[in-house]
Design a protein around this nucleic acid. Structure first.
Lengths: 158, 158
DNA sequence: GAAAATAGTTATACTTTTGTAACCATTTTT
DNA sequence: AAAAATGGTTACAAAAGTATAACTATTTTC
């Protein structure tokens, strides 16, 4: 039983290492050509689309980026009116970034644009394969989120 | 039925867009800190580990990078004796890059290093979840490979 | 055999990402 | 109230990724 687990872990790692460049290939180029945001800002917008409000530090932890980098990325999003800075009245050091209605709408539009090529390819799959893909990707997303998200507690100081 | 497909496609795209930054977070930092290769060279080594031999153009297509960039990445791998250039006797314009024994061994070592943190987290999962993760990630990898790999035919001219 | 196409390299400029360190404002600790 | 800790910002340097264009060497095409 313990042995089974080790094999499963190895399989998962092999698969994730293979999936990584495939996703990079599928999205990175489209992000550049079809949006006026850089990938970093788009990722920030993405997690704000999920959480709606996060402090600068929380964003940094979620994306494993130093806070100093987040500042610039958020500035870009503010320039596009996609997010807003809100100073926390309870602790005025904290900057809570929250996504605007425009930000939510723009993010959905950009998702459409970015995934156009992928969508066309998915449309060619047969219903069964598509169903398996849908279920499997949901599992991978959920489990990965649950184990990677732990790191949010770790503080990045710089 | 057609409606079901559309929903599945949307689900897949949503999930992949969420998985992308999670994998980036899990691997990118580890690649920098635990190897002396840049991520680009590692990805090249990764696909050579799968295919064993590829021409410069094929590598470029597989990773959606211009050939001019591949040259530098392969140069680094050659400097580490992980791959070799072989001039095709049938068509002397073509450079076939093939992975060496050292390259295969190094790649496996680096995979270990890079995935250490992830492995520790996976070890905390219960056997059932791990099993689901293993199966699901295999499906995602296989399907994604089958649909993304098509692009290998598209030639990148620059 | 000349012209066009192909495979790869070199060079250059630019953007993005990453890593530090110093710094300010606010809050917490003592 | 002074010292330490925390949350963010600013500034700077280095590494990596991206996009082009010009170029050489071969092969194909006509």
């Amino acid at each position: 039983m313990k042995e089974n687990n080790r094999i499963s872990i190895d399989t998962v790692i092999e698969n994730l290492i293979s999936i990584h460049p495939l996703l990079k290939k599928s999205f990175s180029k489209a992000i550049r050509s079809k949006t006026n945001l850089n990938p970093g800002s788009l990722h920030v917008l993405g997690i704000l689309n999920n959480h709606k409000v996060l402090s600068m530090s929380e964003i940094g932890c979620s994306l494993s980026m130093p806070k100093s980098h987040i500042t610039g990325l958020v500035d870009k999003l503010i320039a596009e009116n996609m997010v807003e800075r809100l100073y926390d009245p309870k602790d005025r050091r904290i900057v809570n970034v929250h996504i605007t209605e425009k930000g939510i709408a723009d993010f959905n539009d950009m998702k459409q644009e970015i995934s156009q090529d992928l969508r066309r390819k998915l449309e060619k799959l047969d219903a069964d394969t598509l169903h398996v893909f849908s279920e499997s990707s949901q599992h991978v997303k959920d489990i990965l989120e649950s184990i990677v998200q732990e790191q949010t507690e770790i503080s990045i100081t710089t």
